[in-house]
Write a protein that binds this DNA or RNA. Structure first.
Lengths: 344, 344
DNA sequence: GTGAAAGCGCTAACAG
DNA sequence: CTGTTAGCGCTTTCAC
């Protein structure tokens, strides 16, 4: 069974390609094609197992009905949940998804954008960027190319974005820890440090302490390179617990850090929260099942995906004059026992 | 900055499109185009920021350099790890990925295949199928369309496959449990039950018991619909622990079941392994961190992805006479404390 | 109501 | 060494 083309359907019916195309795109009636003819065409197409070649249509119309998604790593639960939500929301509008992982490499990200945009594979891109400079995106904006930033924004770049209240989410967590009785709250963050999400979380941490008249102790803030988490974590924890630092709680700024931290704590035979209370940004299924279950700032992954698609489709369909829009979503504090009562 | 086409580059240089195309596709030398001219073309293309339109090229050559991936749910860790591995391996060969979740719905899966294959979006498909009948795939095979089944196969369908030793993996686990001292090993499985992976696991369970001269007790085998795991789990566990059944260990046949089971056990305030030992097919990051850490059959996700891409690319590049190949990968038993010594 | 013809941007056979 | 030409399969304008 060979691939059938429009032409072959037309020939089989003894009509023109135009007619078949019109009918199959439901423009039959608006062109006054008789109902009878329409039916004949529909039936023949079905009978011949005809499906239009989307590549050809895409070339002709400039519309592939595919969206691009670029994230750091699709195997990270945070991104894979968002991806699923994007997929579903896009499907509602007849779009499908090309998926790319940038591995936090700005050059690779740029290559991917080139692939998706300049080589015209997709009609718009959703990206959790790892760039430091706005150039790539300001160029896209100037070109009028539809894109939406999620999770991370770039300073001085006005564009459609879906962000969560990273600073506020972190502040809420720090204040919860303070209220519970923790006094030496450590922060483990990740490099590259230029990521807005991470920066804002660090800011939120500092602000919360300041608001509570607690001096920020640089010894309590630790930075681990994203591609060497496992090796560095244990050392950092040991130092946090040393007499010079004496942390009593640690806040991990993303889910990879948290997973690794929990592992290390387990290997080191430390008790949570007695030896060290633990909290994480990003909630994972796993956190509910840990012992003790881990308190976390939870991000609305599904909502992030939905909003991103909504904004992207708006751009694709909208006049170029459309204003940029920013969706700022709330995080929520999920309190579990990993930073339970200080004395328990 | 508008999109530049091949024609425009050619005109800017005062040469033909052919020349530019040849040079940019590195076929310059083989057509004896002077090095000098080649250089001029390369530079001009770069200067004008020219990138070929892949849709046009795809239409002409019939090659989109995109692969399709269809899984039940990309937000499931098992599939997202595989997806990442596929992405990386495909990228090495210059391919990118379109991603689709079927939600275990055979009709949706068929629609997706139609989209990807019949509408000519991709050059080959990797699929974890949810079909019961081989028709879709035998048709694809007859059409000579490249595809690889992963994770689940179909009886009486000869095609490229990447599978793990589900029966054997399960057997190993059951035997480990028996050796540790458990006598009433329950199985929680999932419907739809026609999935080969699940069926083989059930078979592996029964075989292991038989080999050890233990009668299979149907009361110990429980089936939960995949889209209602949460609601059913608690009831099943309660029944397993009832005096009529008296299970002392439970083996969950996939990661979703295991997550839900652990949650229920926690809510019910049961102790693992004293009240009930727990083991899972599929290993998750979370299992290491649970209390106690969960024993699991671990699948080689990365290897699955790599093999699948390898086979798919072989098909794409190979003569139609190529024989189907099956990659059968090993699982490994990861023993943790959730089914520790029976008496501990 | 229907059809002819142009053309999206590219590649490749063929000609010179 | 380089150019001409013919499509890939589709949509869409315009003409009848």
């Amino acid at each position: 069974m060979k691939k059938i083309s429009l032409k072959e359907v037309a020939e089989a019916l003894g009509v023109s390609k135009t007619l078949v195309s019109l009918v199959l795109n439901n423009k039959g009636s608006e062109h006054g094609i008789s109902v009878e003819t329409q039916k004949r065409v529909q039936e023949k197409a079905k009978e011949m197992n005809y499906y239009p070649n989307l590549v050809a249509r895409g070339l002709r119309t400039g519309k592939s009905n595919i969206l691009g998604l670029i994230v750091a790593d699709i195997s990270n639960a945070f991104y894979s949940k968002i991806a699923r939500s994007i997929e579903d929301k896009a499907a509602e509008a007849g779009y499908h998804l090309m998926l790319c992982s940038s591995d936090e490499d700005p050059d690779r990200e740029n290559d991917l954008i080139r692939l998706l945009k300049d080589r015209q594979q997709v009609n718009g891109i959703i990206v959790s960027t790892t760039q430091q400079k706005p150039e790539t995106f300001s160029r896209m904006k100037k070109d009028g190319y539809p894109f939406v930033l999620i999770d991370r924004y770039l300073p001085r770049l006005e564009c459609d974005q879906v962000m969560v209240d990273n600073a506020n989410g972190t502040s809420k967590m720090v204040e919860h820890l303070l209220k519970t009785g923790y006094k030496r709250i450590a922060l483990i963050t990740i490099s590259p440090t230029h990521l807005s999400s991470i920066r804002d979380r660090v800011t939120g941490y500092k602000d919360a302490l300041k608001r509570n008249n607690i001096k920020v102790d640089p010894k309590l803030i630790r930075e681990i390179p994203f591609d060497d988490i496992r090796n560095s974590m244990r050392k950092e924890i040991r130092e946090l617990l040393s007499p010079q630092v004496k942390a009593d709680a640690v806040f991990l700024l993303n889910n990879n850090l948290a997973l690794s931290c929990l592992e290390s704590i387990q290997e080191m035979n430390l008790r949570i929260p007695q030896d060290l209370a633990v909290a994480s940004f990003d909630d994972l299924d796993a956190f509910l099942l840990c012992y003790p279950p881990v308190t976390a700032v939870s991000q609305p992954m599904q909502k992030i995906g939905e909003e991103a698609v909504k904004l992207l489709l708006e751009q694709i369909d909208a006049p170029p004059s459309r204003q940029s829009r920013i969706a700022e979503l709330e995080t929520s504090l999920v309190i579990r026992k990993s930073c339970g009562s200080y004395l328990s």
